[in-house]
Design a protein around this nucleic acid. Structure first.
Length: 257
DNA sequence: ATGGTTGCTTAGCAA
């Protein structure tokens, strides 16, 4: 089973690119972040035409997540089922065939110490609590998304600078680490020791041609699935060409036979 | 990295 994740930075702007990528890569499931559209305006038909059922959780202008699945979807949850305020349409989960798949768009945090920074750290803790409520680490669960945190220095082009920023601050890394202590494994690191393998490059810094990036998009597999992960990759090619997202898709494959 | 762009909505915000 091939599961992918891609922050598309507007599904309406990226629709054709995503269609082409689905046709080329043929994942069983694609988790999407930053769809930036209400559910009524989500372009579902072109994805259905390719055999993917969209599970959507969106809002106007900002955020928005989706799961496109060609495996049968038998159960869906939107947002956190806890008592706190939602803080944007940033989480959707679906049982896709034998696997529970989460598409997560973790708050960026804006500035260290800001109100949004607190929301980000809290959000990662709420995600762990949600996993605790619904799953055991031995279950088949995949948590995909734009985590807005790079796990390690080798995932960051300038760690000394970025450790002062929201995407690589020690507190954000700790919050991500605590999430993973539920029993989640970074599938990319099961198959690569590479330094400088990034998934996001800032439009503003013209970062892509200089490879000034960070690896903040992850496919996390539960302990129950990690041993069955046969491959993982970042599709840097999909960041090239006209009108790309600022993120590349990330993928992992699992042998569920 | 420190200026650079992009998308949504329509001047300003978010990333």
């Amino acid at each position: 089973m091939k599961i992918a994740s891609w922050n598309v930075n507007s599904i309406r702007s990226r629709q054709e690119r995503v269609e082409q990528w689905l046709a080329q890569q043929a994942p069983d499931v694609l988790c999407v972040q930053e769809t930036k559209v209400t559910d009524d305006a989500f372009p579902a038909a072109p994805f259905r035409a390719l055999g993917y059922e969209p599970v959507i959780h969106g809002q106007k202008t900002y955020n928005g997540v989706a799961i496109l699945s060609r495996a049968p979807v038998t159960e869906v949850r939107r947002g956190f089922d806890d008592s706190e305020a939602e803080a944007g349409a940033r989480l959707v989960a679906a049982r896709c065939g034998p696997v529970w798949v989460y598409s997560a768009y973790v708050p960026n945090g804006q500035v260290v110490g800001s109100e949004q920074w607190g929301v980000k750290l809290r959000w990662l803790a709420r995600l762990r609590a949600t996993l605790e409520r619904h799953h055991k680490p031995t279950d088949a669960v995949v948590v995909c998304g734009d985590f807005n945190v790079a796990p390690e220095a080798r995932d960051v082009h300038d760690p000394e600078f970025w450790k002062t920023q929201v995407l690589f601050h020690p507190q954000a890394r700790e919050a991500l680490h605590h999430l993973c202590e539920f029993g989640l494994v970074d599938t990319f690191r099961l198959h690569s020791e590479a330094h400088g393998a990034y998934s996001w490059w800032d439009y503003r810094a013209l970062g892509f041609p200089r490879n000034l990036g960070l690896r903040i998009d992850l496919v996390l597999a539960s302990n129950g699935l990690a041993g069955r992960c046969t491959a993982a990759a970042i599709d840097r090619e999909a960041r090239k060409g006209p009108l790309p997202s600022d993120h590349a898709p990330v993928l992992a494959e699992f042998d569920l036979s």
